[in-house]
Design a protein around this nucleic acid. Structure first.
Length: 460
RNA sequence: GCCGUGUUCGUCUAGUGGCCCAGGACGGUUGGUUCUCAACCAACAAAUCACCGGUUCGAAUCCGGUACACGGCACCA
């Protein structure tokens, strides 16, 4: 049984686009193999915990249409799906490792550790735990623990040998054990670190494929060792290349919009976002650019996933979104726009104006800037309208002529021309206020009649 | 500094020894269509396949080295 998962931390305001990207691949792998896709919340860092984050993450995932069969909200056979509710499990395994001699209690203070690292840095040594507490006898440590002394549990790693694992995307990867640090497994507050948490939960939840970001490659050997120490079978690993900023650094909120909700608010369609993310990870065998997730599921193979970290290009996303907008039936798009603006524009108005602007919309949010002047009054102290030359019936109107009188005149003239369609007249007006959100309250003064879009009557 | 991963047009990529003096897409430019914009159509520009060396009749594709980029090196995930 194929079981995949994403394990987001509730430390940001919403689902990170990078998480959406790995979620997509996890979801596709599960679907392709008729398996299950699971969500587990890794809320083990109390200092970075953000209230409401989990809800937003779940909401965004739902918006994207990436549905899970087990998770903190839906429950499932391995409940709970929130690490903070599974503390006793981690403690149990950490102590088991201590008993086996695969881990040890460490009483070093943060101050000592900081001091130690400073020394190492100045000596150009790799920053690693120096193993001081490893030397203590089991009884000695046990007494100190019993006396209530603050402690953590550290992984005790061999300093010989090589740990090798196979990555489904990159092939074999190996690390020398002596270069691996004695990682903290259980923090002094009783919470596990990521390393203990993932291994325990992925095993207990029977995760078959661990598909995560490339940033985890260096810690994978520790996880592999942990599986061995615990006597558990290894899952399959696949490390995805990281999404990058235009300056090639790892995608960050400082340099790029990273929250999925931002893309939603900008009026990107979930299908388009997903399609774009898919092309970041993987190329369709037929070199198709536009494809649905179902199409992707049919031909997807993990080993075809890109190894190079792509730069997230919002321009291409916008193009793709425009393609999706134009693919959507007008009646459906009308409803989407209505919902997008929370019903502040009536559906009828949207239906009338949408055909006039849909071809130049790249996002739902652009509907307002493109068509808003049909029905929105200019604001009180709005700066004068900057308009492009308006040509009606072949005659150009000067910018300064752009006022109600000129407009009325222009429209009259235009409509007098036999066969002149409303669409064309509107188009000219729209062009005149290209890209501007302000304009005359046109819709109030004009009424478009007739199904053939012919401008039949103008009332002012 | 150490370890790891990577390197084909500005960007996303196709390419797994001859079909590639490298194909597609975004973006750009020019033209067509349209009274204008967008959309659509067409064309053009854009990659010495990071570099050096090797294997081979033949390399973007295989091997070695170098450089560069990114990631990791926390009681963060």
């Amino acid at each position: 049984m194929v079981r995949t998962r994403i394990a987001p931390s509730p430390t940001g305001q919403d689902l990170h686009i990078g998480n959406a990207y790995t979620a997509l691949v996890n979801y596709v792998v599960a679907k392709k193999n008729e398996g299950k896709f699971i969500i587990r919340i890794e809320d083990t860092d109390r200092t970075r915990f953000v209230e409401g984050s989990e809800d937003h993450i779940l909401e965004s995932l739902a918006w994207l249409g990436i549905t899970h069969s087990e998770g903190p909200d839906t429950g499932g056979p391995y409940t709970p799906y929130r690490q903070s509710e599974r503390l006793s499990l981690y403690k149990k395994y950490a102590e088991e490792l201590v008993v086996q001699g695969k881990a040890y209690y460490c009483f070093c203070t943060p101050e000592r550790l900081a001091e130690m690292r400073k020394g190492q840095e100045s000596r150009h040594e790799p920053p690693m735990y120096d193993g001081m507490c490893k030397a203590f006898s089991r009884q000695q440590s046990a007494i100190r623990v019993k006396n209530g002394e603050q402690h953590v549990i550290r992984l005790s790693l061999p300093d010989e040998g090589v740990t090798v694992f196979t990555d489904l995307i990159r092939g074999e990867i190996s690390f020398e054990n002596k270069l691996l640090d004695d990682q903290v497994l259980l923090k002094s507050d009783g919470f596990p670190t990521y390393h203990l948490g993932v291994v325990v939960d992925d095993h207990l939840m029977e995760i078959s494929h661990i598909i995560r970001g490339e940033e985890w490659i260096s810690s994978t050997p520790k996880h592999v060792l942990l599986y061995q120490f615990l006597g558990w079978g290894l899952p399959l690993y696949a490390h995805m290349p990281l999404l990058r900023n235009p300056d090639k650094s790892k995608l960050s909120k400082r340099k790029n919009p990273v929250w999925v909700s931002w893309y939603r608010e900008q009026g990107f369609l979930p299908e388009a976002l997903l399609n774009y993310l898919a092309t970041m990870a993987w190329a369709h065998p037929d070199e198709k650019e536009i494809f649905s997730i179902d199409e992707m599921v049919e031909v997807f193979d993990l080993s075809d996933v890109q190894t190079t970290a792509p730069i997230f290009d919002i321009e291409k996303l916008r193009w793709m979104n425009g393609e999706y907008l134009r693919k959507t039936q007008n009646s459906k798009l009308k409803t989407q726009i209505y919902d997008f603006y929370n019903g502040i524009y009536d559906e009828d108005t949207i239906a009338k104006t949408l055909p006039l602007v849909v071809e130049r919309m790249k996002t739902l949010a652009e509907y307002r800037s493109l068509a808003g002047f049909f029905f929105e009054r200019p604001k009180e102290h709005e700066p004068p309208l900057k308009v492009a030359p308006l040509k009606v019936g072949g005659e150009a109107l000067r910018l300064s002529d752009w006022n109600h009188d000129a407009m009325e005149h222009a429209i009259r003239e235009a409509s007098e021309k036999a066969g002149m369609k409303a669409k064309d007249v509107f188009m000219e007006l729209r062009v005149a206020v290209t890209g501007k959100t302000v304009g005359p309250p046109l819709l109030e003064s004009l009424e478009v009649l007739g199904k053939d879009e012919t401008l039949r009557r103008i009332t002012l």
